[in-house]
Amino acid sequence: MIIDIIIYLLGILTMIIIIQAILSWLVAFNVINTYNDFVRQFLYALDRITEPLYKPVRKILPDFGALDLSPLVVLILIQIIERVLRGVQSGSPLI
């Protein structure tokens, strides 16, 4: 039961990271107007949610300039955690 809740929350976190990454691309290519108050607040909220996850990964990864791979690394880590939890839940080996 608790593992199901954790897996569900990890799924929500995955969607938040994907939405934040796509929106950051749209802002970088000037598709989204950041002068709009709602858009700016929404982007700020997403940044506040995801930044604590990205910060430790950014300390480890080398600097790639404008290319930020930390969302990809965090998504891979989330997938690994989900697999481990599903293995624990089913009682089978972890992989």
Rank of each mutant, 00 (worst) to 15 (best):
M1I: 06
M1V: 11
I2G: 14
I2M: 15
I3S: 15
D4W: 12
I6P: 08
I7F: 12
I7L: 15
I7M: 13
I7T: 14
Y8N: 13
L10N: 06
G11Q: 13
G11M: 10
I12C: 07
I12F: 12
L13Y: 03
T14M: 06
M15N: 14
I16F: 12
I16L: 14
I17R: 07
I17L: 12
I17F: 10
I17H: 08
I18R: 11
I18T: 06
I19Q: 09
Q20P: 00
Q20G: 05
I22H: 12
L23S: 07
L23A: 11
L23W: 03
L23Q: 03
S24Y: 11
W25T: 06
W25K: 09
W25Q: 13
W25H: 13
L26T: 04
L26E: 04
V27M: 06
A28C: 02
A28T: 05
F29D: 02
F29H: 07
F29W: 12
N30I: 00
V31Y: 09
I32M: 04
I32D: 02
N33V: 01
T34Q: 09
T34P: 00
Y35V: 01
Y35L: 04
N36H: 04
D37N: 10
D37K: 09
F38L: 05
V39Q: 02
R40L: 02
R40G: 00
R40P: 00
Q41V: 01
F42R: 01
Y44K: 10
Y44D: 09
A45H: 05
A45C: 03
A45K: 13
L46C: 09
L46S: 08
D47N: 11
D47F: 08
D47P: 00
I49P: 10
I49V: 15
I49F: 15
T50V: 14
T50G: 07
P52I: 04
P52W: 12
Y54V: 04
K55P: 00
P56W: 13
I60K: 09
L61E: 07
L61M: 12
L61V: 06
D63N: 15
F64W: 03
A66V: 05
L69Q: 03
L69W: 08
P71D: 06
P71R: 08
P71M: 07
L72P: 00
L72Y: 12
L75P: 02
L75H: 05
I76Q: 02
L77F: 13
L77Y: 06
I78P: 02
I78Q: 02
I78A: 05
Q79L: 02
Q79A: 10
Q79W: 02
Q79G: 11
Q79F: 04
I80T: 07
I81H: 04
E82V: 15
E82C: 03
V84N: 06
L85P: 03
R86H: 03
G87D: 06
G87H: 04
G87P: 06
V88H: 02
V88C: 08
Q89E: 15
G91R: 11
G91Q: 12
G91M: 09
G91Y: 09
S92P: 00
S92Y: 12
P93C: 01
P93D: 10
P93G: 08
P93W: 14
P93Q: 11
